[in-house]
Design a protein around this nucleic acid. Sequence first.
DNA 1: GTAACTGCAAAATATTTGCATCCTT
DNA 2: AAGGATGCAAATATTTTGCAGTTAC
Lengths: 149, 149
Amino acid sequence: MALAITLDNLHNMINIPDILKRNSLSITDGRMKILELFYNSEGALAHADIEKKTGLAVDRVTVYRTLQTFVEKGIIHQVPTTDNSILYALCKHDCEKGHHHDNHVHFVCNQCEATVCLDEVTVPSVKLPVGFRPVQAAMIVTGLCKNCI
Amino acid sequence: MALAITLDNLHNMINIPDILKRNSLSITDGRMKILELFYNSEGALAHADIEKKTGLAVDRVTVYRTLQTFVEKGIIHQVPTTDNSILYALCKHDCEKGHHHDNHVHFVCNQCEATVCLDEVTVPSVKLPVGFRPVQAAMIVTGLCKNCI
DNA sequence: GTAACTGCAAAATATTTGCATCCTT
DNA sequence: AAGGATGCAAATATTTTGCAGTTAC
């Protein structure tokens, strides 16, 4: 019989300490808790979300420093937004190696406010006016997500 | 206060007080100065840019309030960014009527840091996974602008 | 004259930095 | 043991709010 891959055993396949180790980061409670949060969350997270969910377990300053570290290591990336909020999301593919490959479309739900990475949808290229040399492109689509339709 | 008539807005026959009037806003020094700034600037502006350029002429709080008012009226729009900065740019077409039509691509120069609206380049549509209903899309391209190539 | 707008002060938030202590390796 | 990571306190920075005085209409 085929092995059913549920969310749960998908998570079991992910080894949080290992990810930290691969990125030459010491394995600490705070980093584990925060990284776990990302793996257990559907969409992108703001600093405030993380602070709320970790509660007293992790200091506010540590959250700032951890997010910064994770971005530098390529474990998470900053999600572009149309407003001015700062969101972070896991680099699903192989950003862990230090290069970000977040050229996928980000979707923001107007209803539930969640931001999700549509890893399978790549940003289309556009023709720019003469004189502009493109290097990277980001795209944000807003609308209704599957939970809110 | 005397409105400085630059070659540019003279040529385009842009009447700053008129724009305010059309939007049922009283014509004040601060609003004129700030709106003028937008018309005389190539790209998008951050709150800090405006504060620096208006100097003591306009209070910091007034800048915040004016930007908010202008966005509400559809005179300017918030520019999506890949980092977390807040940028504003003129709505070039007919956003003054209260609806935003900023579905154009925004370009950020890695060299000079300027953000410009590519009004002539519209955001392409993408095919989303089942369950996502798109309403709006934004796109940010980074690279080198014509001045920095 | 009246409503709208501004500036100032201060409150509320958000982010960064320094340093002593603790924990991972 | 040593270097890195954390927590706490405090310094900065950013944004919002209240209110009294001023200005546009």
